[in-house]
């Protein structure tokens, strides 16, 4: 039989007490942190967690907004697979994400580098480029709607004035041009944000490295690609990710300018979901479409993390 010593040496007791006090203080600090986080956590769960779970649940029902929903299993997900309008909207979203990310980021990067290279009036240009960002998307949509207006719009009037009247058309009313006309407006309203953020990132570029590359005979393109871009990679990644996620959530500009028309030509997932759920009172299927948006957003977030790791 062995016995466990019931007493410890004085210095061991003292160290144990210190550890206990330290642990107690740490636990108290952690609890305090938890209390600080709790209000935000409750709000998050109430306004995001619970609605998200409710949406998941509704996606398995045929709820029409009235009464109690009936469970329909995976019927909505089967319907999703054969819903041509959904695939068309998703395709439009992909076009939106690709063009709506590539164009403003590339244009923004080029202009940011030009402004960074001690261009005269840099502050004025940055202000001008950033102005559309502070305008409401609704205001922008209405104004560009006037520009595209086939009766009195600036665009068609201008085309006619320069002898290109044959090109004049109802930009927002033709199925071939509606999506791109709205997308151009969105790009115009957004590229200023890219310029300002990338310009801020460029402030951390070491000019000595750029100068050294120039001394070594690197061309402007080589300096840009191999010296500048690697140094702003984290910022560039953040801008791309932010823009991609925004592209999947596109709604306001499309809704104001075309409401997804004509004949769904400019429909994106968010506008289609709204129409199905709130106009068609098909909340069950609307919830299923929301799940599509969530999955796509999760994939975009995952791609972001990969890009971040590579960019870091």
């Amino acid at each position: 039989m062995t016995t466990t010593p019931r007493t410890k040496a004085p210095h061991a007791r003292s160290a144990g007490a210190k550890n206990r006090r330290r642990r107690s203080r740490t636990a108290a600090r952690e609890m305090a942190g938890l209390w600080f986080v709790l209000p935000a956590l409750v709000i998050y769960l109430m306004f995001f967690g619970l609605p998200f779970l409710a949406t998941v649940g509704l996606s398995f029902t045929d709820w029409n907004g009235i009464g109690w929903p009936d469970f329909t299993g995976v019927a909505n997900y089967v319907r999703l697979a054969v819903d041509g309008a959904m695939w068309s909207a998703l395709t439009n979203n992909l076009i939106w994400v690709v063009l709506g990310t590539a164009v403003p980021v590339i244009v923004g990067l080029i202009l940011a580098v030009m402004l960074w290279s001690d261009a005269r009036g840099s502050v004025a240009y940055r202000t001008i480029f950033f102005l559309p960002v502070i305008l409401s998307p609704v205001v922008i949509g209405v104004i560009w709607g006037w520009i595209y207006n086939p009766l009195f719009g600036l665009l068609n009037t201008g085309l006619r004035e320069v002898g290109l009247g044959a090109w004049a058309m109802g930009w927002l009313g033709e199925s071939e041009t509606a999506l791109y006309a709205v997308l151009l407006t969105a790009i115009w309203s957004y590229f200023g944000f890219c310029i300002v953020v990338l310009f801020a990132g460029l402030q951390k570029v070491n000019p000595e490295l750029v100068e050294a590359a120039r001394t070594d005979g690197a061309s402007a393109t080589q300096r840009f690609r191999h010296v500048i871009v690697p140094q702003i990679a984290p910022v560039l990644t953040m801008v791309i990710v932010y823009t991609v996620i925004g592209g999947f959530n596109a709604f306001d500009m499309v809704w104001v300018m075309t409401q997804g028309g004509p004949n769904n030509a400019s429909e994106v997932i968010a506008t289609y979901t709204y129409e199905v759920a709130f106009r068609g009172n098909d909340y069950g299927y609307g919830a299923t479409l929301s799940m599509v948006m969530s999955v796509v957003a999760l994939l975009a977030a995952w791609a972001t993390m990969i890009l971040r790791r590579r960019g870091a």
């Binding site: 207006n149 086939p150 058309m169 109802g170 927002l172 009313g173």
Partner: peptide, 16 residues
């Protein structure tokens, strides 16, 4: 009809 009916708003048609 006027040109581009799908691109003309109801209000603009009334204004016309």
């Amino acid at each position: 009809f006027n040109a581009s009916v799908n691109a003309v708003s109801y209000d603009d048609a009334n204004a016309l």
